[in-house]
Design a protein around this nucleic acid. Structure first.
Lengths: 251, 251
DNA sequence: CTGTTTATCGTCAGTGAGACGACTATGATC
DNA sequence: GATCATAGTCGTCTCACTGACGATAAACAG
């Protein structure tokens, strides 16, 4: 194909973020309320335009920091860290009524933030349980109420992000991205239970995660913040791939 | 962020294709020779600009058909079919020296084509063993020769595509996309061996694939095209996910 | 002190994978 | 035609891992 600067149509390129965390035993996603048309007043995923000289990952990290104060996981940063990875790209010609927009969606897994409302504006952003945003895989959204659809094609993007997170914690140590830097086996188990929406056997889970080399390293400390007998504290080990994987119970 | 049509920079959006097949027991990728600068004369992945009113997947399917005559796997099409899925998006500001280009890479898994050269122009396209294009995971490229780098960031795109294919045949029935519509267990095993670069035990492999419900359905016919005792012919079953997965041997 | 909660260790049976022996059915070769 | 090489198919044995679940430990609440 010959090079002709006039031969290709111009696109707007954006990044959208699926930011997931676990709050009160529920998988939650960050949603922002749109202030202007289209979809004015509807909830949407955070995102924005990629700048002229900005890498896609950098744009996603910048938007994440603007919305939540979180930093993407860069070795060398000591701020609150989150896992960030590219999810997929959505480019249906009709997905934005204003113009042709291609959105590169990114997935962020963050620990539960102490701040009750992410970002600065409490009215425009919230953590919403994913069950209230999209219908679950097995049935309707919880409480029999159908969720109000997100703006644009963000329902699909969120679904894809949740599914990616659900499958990825099976064979990687990514579930630790939902935990603070030090955590107990029980806290990690509750992450799996919230993300998968299942109940796991504490004894088998304990055997699995402590028996997988490189997954968890004990810090020596203990805590009773979950009540009951004091539990050992761990931090994430160097292993990123779990082999054999953690098995998600059958439905 | 307020809507201002002048506030976002224009991007060119392209699709690039990682087209993989298995030829003579080797995993091969489709490469085209660039006819003009930049990187004139170098090998590159096939691809092209997304049209103004064209979906990303449609653009990838169109480019695939233009280059190889293959059709993406659409139910209802009887042409030679291939699996097509989105791979990842590459948007480094410096990746194309001419302008800001965001490329949505797609992965295509195709059966070995009877035509010796894909597409029409034998001089500009070829199937190249991936080992001759990128260094293998365990060491150098084969024959101790360092491969000539592909144009742009296509080395990375190809590596990502190959890695996706290698991991995806573990837990899905996607390896059948490399096979003709009817194939034997041995032919499927040779696909795994070529993609992973390993040798698998024929007896354990046979037990695994024939014992997984929905993976293979016998057609009733047999063939001796591989020599030896006649082998049953199968076609791909409806199952797409393999549970438990096919295990890739340790290195 | 008793009950409750959570953590942790152990046991046992069943599933599945790796290693590998044995047999079968074809074509090639002497 | 006998023999050999090749590829396919069935079985067996062992080990690792999982799921189910009993038992004990260490905290706190009443």
């Amino acid at each position: 194909m010959p090079y002709d600067p006039a031969a290709f149509p111009p696109f707007a390129v954006t990044v959208d973020l699926v930011v997931l965390t676990v709050r009160r035993h529920e998988l939650c996603a960050l949603a922002v309320r749109r202030g202007e048309p289209p979809y004015q007043g509807r909830w949407a995923l955070p995102g924005g335009f990629v700048r002229a000289e900005e890498d896609l990952t950098a744009a996603a990290a910048r938007e994440l920091n603007e919305e939540t104060g979180l930093r993407a996981h860069d070795p060398g940063s000591s701020a609150a860290e989150a896992h960030l990875e590219q999810l997929a790209t959505y480019g249906d010609p009709q997905r934005d009524p204003r113009m042709r927009v291609v959105s590169v969606a990114h997935l962020v897994l963050a620990p539960d933030l102490p701040s009750p409302t992410p970002g600065g504006d409490a009215h425009s952003a919230r953590w919403a349980p994913v069950d209230t945003l999209i219908a679950g895989p097995g049935g309707t959204g919880r409480e029999e109420e159908q969720p109000i659809p997100l703006a644009f094609d963000h329902d699909r993007i969120l679904s894809d992000g949740v599914e990616r997170a659900r499958s990825k914690i099976e064979y990687s140590s990514l579930a630790t991205a939902f935990c603070p830097s030090e955590f107990t086996v029980g806290e990690l188990r509750r992450v799996y239970e919230a993300v998968w929406g299942v109940v796991l056997d504490p004894r088998n889970f304990h055997r699995k995660v402590t028996g997988t080399p490189g997954f968890l390293v004990p810090t020596g400390g203990t805590t009773t913040r979950q009540g009951g007998r004091p539990a050992q504290l761990f931090r994430a080990g160097g292993a990123t791939l779990l082999n054999p994987p953690m098995l998600r119970p059958e439905v």
